[in-house]
Design a protein around this nucleic acid. Structure first.
Lengths: 247, 247
DNA sequence: TAGTGGTCTAGACCACTGA
DNA sequence: CAGTGGTCTAGACCACTAA
């Protein structure tokens, strides 16, 4: 076997301060230091590590990128709970998926309206632009922590009299509702996953600073007859999930 | 239809400086300002926007998180090319996938060795810890830009006399090599996708600062007989791909 | 060697959270 | 209200890239 060693240059500097702070924090976390999962204040930590808040923050941000820590806006830094295993090919049932992993789900309805499809939505659902759709915005939590902001767009043509459903029904599983009232089961699915910076609205809902990194998942769902019936635009807290797929 | 409006609080402040710089940069980029895709220096930009480098950098970092810009370490900021559509269920053929999207692929072999499986690798391949595996590290580029650092681990038991292959063979498609010399085709696949901060080595290879956000993809591949034959640990430049799946 | 980003200092004020 | 993170200033030195 030919050795193709040393093509990668050696490290350029000993160890950056940020790197060693990061390591120290990881060690502290591994020891389970913060009882309630909450870290000491940034100012306190920066003092402890004899550095600036900016530098300390850099280390925290990297741990956030790694999914080890997360923030709640102006509340503080917390140790991230284990990631939810999320299989986007298993449709519907956010609630069931969460419960199966011994966690407690919660869904909150934020907004619902009947509107005309934007060009993007029309393309996804394969309908005419301006065709009527229902838009539903929801926030979903795991163990009391907001992890997902989602906009559902339903092709109105597939869901006559959808207006009749109240807040309560729309805070529960849509999958269930489809089956019960429309005899619709999910069929094929298409989806895309991209890292993205959080726009204003999802950021507010997830209690995160706008522009923070997140995972954006866009799904289009067909029913058992192959019609594209709805699509979901999902913004996940980046540390909250691990996408797991078998094929 | 019940109106569940205004549950989301109004914006807390007018517009942050970072947000407006971000918008201004986006507008400039949309106009195609940087000829070669390269942005002016940070110091120059911070002067142009009458702000500090730190603040300016914050805006750049958010655009990076969004996949609009990317960095090369100590070289500068660049406008990100379109994302590669990456379907992890279509195995092998990085090269073909890239060419089909009218881009130019390149693979560089970094390192190859025969070693004992670590506990993680052993678990993935369903073999005994310390069982022999081949490890291959490669860097892959699109249109001359490094986008992927990957470690392949091959179950040695499935690939007798693998040592005979030289650098050249290992810089090409493994899929091809499997088929040609071992009569092995890919079968099932399992994979996981998580956002992650770049460790030292992949960062160096991708010419990015360590700790930068990236997309981590871990895949385990079976052959036509259902044996787990190899696994890939992939670190992608976060802006380089859009994961697209149909099921 | 000049110019770049990477890292770091030592502060400051503000908007918001929670008691 | 005190305390938190969010944002911002005005510098500095270093390691590296590219010419």
């Amino acid at each position: 076997m030919t050795a193709v060693q040393n093509r990668i240059a050696a490290p350029r500097q000993a160890v950056s301060q940020v790197a060693s702070i990061r390591r120290a924090l990881l060690a502290q976390i591994a020891q389970g230091l913060p009882e309630d999962g909450r870290l000491p204040a940034e100012r306190q930590l920066s003092e402890q590590f004899a550095t600036t808040r900016i530098t300390l923050r850099e280390a925290l941000l990297q741990l956030e990128a790694d999914g080890v820590l997360y923030r709640e806006e102006r509340r503080g830094w917390f140790v991230a709970p284990p990631r939810l295993h999320y299989d986007p090919t298993a449709r519907g049932y956010f609630e069931r998926m969460v419960r199966e992993q011994s966690r407690i789900p919660h869904t909150r309805l934020l907004h619902v309206e009947s509107m005309a499809a934007t060009p993007t939505i029309a393309a996804l659902l394969d309908i005419e632009p301006l065709a009527p759709v229902y838009m539903i915005r929801r926030a979903r939590s795991i163990d009391g922590r907001r992890v997902l902001f989602v906009e559902h767009y339903l092709n109105s043509a597939c869901f006559p009299h959808f207006e009749r459903f109240g807040d309560k029904a729309l805070s529960r599983s849509l999958t269930e509702l489809y089956r019960r009232y429309y005899d619709i089961e999910y069929g094929r699915v298409r989806f895309e996953i991209t890292p993205a910076a959080l726009p204003e609205l999802p950021a507010r809902v997830l209690k995160v600073a706008a522009g923070s990194p997140a995972l954006y998942v866009q799904r289009v769902n067909a029913d058992q007859h192959g019609r594209w019936i709805d699509c979901d635009l999902e913004y996940w807290r980046q540390d909250a999930i691990k996408v797991c797929i078998e094929a």
